[in-house]
């Protein structure tokens, strides 16, 4: 076991819920494989592709369509074209790789314009703000852009995009 994964195993927060135990993995404790993939679920709960589709399209959540087109969502006008189309992502990438891309795209594509959706450390940013207020961030409330479960849901949705 590497030092990284050992500390990850120790630090994973145990959440007791309805009798079952889920281990939610915090951003600092992610265990990477081959530098670009995250094999383990971040939330411990399987992703829901229907919820994932909402996160992908919603401006206040993933807002992925601001940069990506996705022909599976023709009902959403104004899809951006900064990044490649999401069509076929589920065929091009494994689930672990998609988790890596959604959680921390800059690790997979160095210098990418794609934001890091799963990092809650304000010190990694230059002048982080409080959401879209233009004011300084609040250390009490600063959080990841997507929750662990939202990342899982988005990955589950992307896995359904196999046509391209």
């Amino acid at each position: 076991m590497t030092r990284r994964s050992l500390s990850a195993a120790c630090a994973a927060t145990a959440v007791i819920w309805g009798g079952a135990t889920f281990a939610e993995i915090s951003p600092a404790d992610i265990v990477w494989e081959d530098e670009i993939a995250i094999p383990a679920s971040l939330s411990g709960t399987p992703g829901d592709p229907v919820a994932g589709a909402v996160t992908v399209s919603s401006r206040s959540a993933g807002n992925c369509l601001s940069c990506h087109q996705n022909t599976a969502m023709p009902e959403h006008d104004f899809q951006g074209n900064i990044g490649p189309s999401l069509d076929g992502s589920g065929a091009r990438w494994s689930e672990a790789e998609l988790r890596g891309i959604v959680a921390n795209a800059k690790r997979v594509f160095p210098e990418s314009m794609m934001p890091v959706f799963y990092n809650d450390n304000p010190e990694d940013y230059i002048r982080p703000g409080e959401a879209y207020t233009a004011r300084a961030y609040n250390p009490e409330t600063f959080s990841t852009l997507l929750t662990a479960q939202q990342v899982e849901d988005v990955v589950a949705y992307l896995m359904t995009l196999t046509d391209w």
Binding site: C67, I82, P115, Y125, R127, G129, L145
Partner: peptide
């Protein structure tokens, strides 16, 4: 800048002509 880590250049030098939403 910011939690989205975007510079002026990311939008206006690298991606002018494209759509952001």
């Amino acid at each position: 800048f910011g939690q989205l880590e975007l510079s002026c250049a990311n939008c206006h030098e690298d991606n002018w002509g494209r759509m952001i939403r």
